[in-house]
Computed example of a mutant assay.
Amino acid sequence: MTDRDKGKATRLVEGGRRKEWRRRLVNPPVERASTILFDSVADLHASRPALGTYRYGLQGTATQWALAEALTELEPGAAGTALYSSGLAAITTPLLAVLEPGDELLATDSVYGPTRRFCDSFLSRYGVATRYYDPLVGSGIADLIGNRTRAILLESPGSLTMEVQDVPGICAIARKRGIVTLLDNTWATPLLFPAIAAGVDITVLAATKYVGGHADVMLGAATATPDHYDRLQEISWDLGHCVSPDDAWLGSRGLRTMAVRLKQHEESALKVADWLKSQPQVGRVLHPAFSDCPGHEQWKRDFHGSSGLFSFELKGARAAFIDGLELFGIGYSWGGYESLALPISPYRTTSTAPAPNLVRLHIGLEDPDDLIADLGESLAALER
């Protein structure tokens, strides 16, 4: 059986577990190192930064290489993966790798808030202009591309409001125009949406979320095609990005069970979301798998399933509702085994946010019936 014939769950289990890295162990061990010693000056001068080459701690050890290789193997056609200490760093560094002063970036209007802040502040000072487009623009992106446009930043589903974009269509137009495409694929991961196969040049994961899976590690990853990987890795090292071996090991540990966890997240989230749709205190439920979610047809066409994150409109006091929950934590991030609830206020410049009183839920690995009971009690308290 060739690697191409193996299913994604098998690749999750086997990826990065080279025998020369793990020896007789099941998992590559945690190798902590700053200084690497060479047998001679000639060996030192002959060393080059590369996956699998011990050179200096910044370029990693087998612990980091194992995670990077495993993530690359989930994206057929990719050349390699660069690791970062956060999901935000995994977005901002690729942008710096493909943009120069005087360039223009087209970014989806549903982009992650800190990414928008980076574009409007740092990139602006760097001499890069950002224009935001409606996430449902589809083939209309061709009319927005200007002479200075060098990259398009997508996020699908959109952060907070869950719009699903026509990623293959936008990427096909961009490729014809010589424009680089970048996608924040954290919600779906490569298991539910194979980004490189869809035409994306650089796909990004906040690996803090589903890759880690246990709310105990900060981690990011950017996987690139052969045309962009070398430049991406080069600028990552130039900027001093380095993931600790302990964090990389936690990422690899979480990766092995991501397929089974995502199935449970999906099943439970669909059950909870479907229940919420029938509640009188709830307005629109924004879940890509539901037919009334913006871009649902693209989700149905391109995705292999859904994850545990969605939003809904609440007809009542958000703070009181969220404070009344017992099984849902209140906090940023998501993707761990625990359920979370968060009041959200989407910001838009080119399109209208779906509702002014939104709550975002991440459905964890608890019994979904218990989560529904908890939500029901808090909704009933609002009525009282």
Rank of each mutant, 00 (worst) to 15 (best):
R175Q: 13
L25R: 15
G169A: 05
W21D: 11
R360F: 02
I202C: 06
F328H: 08
A50R: 11
P94E: 05
A172E: 13
S244K: 08
S156T: 12
A62C: 12
T63W: 01
E104C: 05
L192R: 12
R253K: 15
L276F: 02
G52I: 04
S306L: 05
R348D: 01
K271D: 02
E104I: 00
L191H: 09
E100C: 00
K176E: 15
R17H: 13
G295K: 04
T115W: 07
P114T: 04
I170W: 01
R261Y: 04
D216N: 15
T115D: 05
L250F: 10
L375E: 01
F193V: 02
V13K: 15
D216A: 07
D292Y: 00
V272E: 03
G80T: 09
S121C: 08
R32T: 12
R253F: 14
K315Y: 11
P280F: 01
R148A: 12
Q279A: 07
A317D: 15
I170R: 03
A273T: 02
A90Y: 06
V111A: 11
T208E: 09
K8N: 09
C119Y: 01
I344R: 08
Q264A: 13
T352S: 12
D216K: 06
H265A: 05
H304R: 15
G158T: 07
D230R: 14
